[in-house]
Nucleic acid binder design. Structure first.
Length: 118
DNA sequence: TTGTTGACGCTCA
DNA sequence: CTGAGCGCCAACA
């Protein structure tokens, strides 16, 4: 059968694009929002494929559980990722998001909240 | 087919 | 807080 294959990826991209500027989310949170609390690694893999996505994905807004910008391995050795975050109003210190707990945007909660708000 | 790797998460020391 | 180890799922050689 025609294996979708990228179903999960596209859902990840959609959630990441739903993250408002000035906010950040985590791989685990996205995975949980998609119903895969343990597939945090898969989210990273899906975002790795965001390079071939038809739409721009603000992957720089996705950090690990500690608020650490692990995306350096993909964005490059420079601070391009941190620069973009700071450009959106997110303070970054030593490659880590400052006040990460305040800037944390959980799709599993925010999206569900919006669904109920209607 | 198995083994290794990966933009992770959690627990323990 | 930092470092190290184990577990998670999928893709690649």
């Amino acid at each position: 059968m025609a294996k979708e294959g990228g179903q999960f990826e596209q859902e990840v991209w959609e959630v990441v694009r739903a993250v408002p500027a000035g906010r950040v989310t985590t791989y685990g949170a996205v995975a949980r929002a998609l119903g895969m609390p343990g597939a945090s690694r898969r989210v990273g893999w899906a975002l790795n494929a965001c390079t071939r996505a038809a739409v721009p994905v603000p992957a720089h807004r996705v950090v690990n559980r500690s608020g650490l910008l692990t995306g350096f391995a993909h964005f490059g050795p420079g601070l391009a990722m941190a620069e973009q975050l700071q450009s959106e109003g997110i303070a970054v210190e030593a490659g880590r998001v400052v006040r990460f707990a305040e800037l944390f945007w959980d799709p599993a909660v925010e999206l569900a909240h919006e669904a109920e708000r209607t």
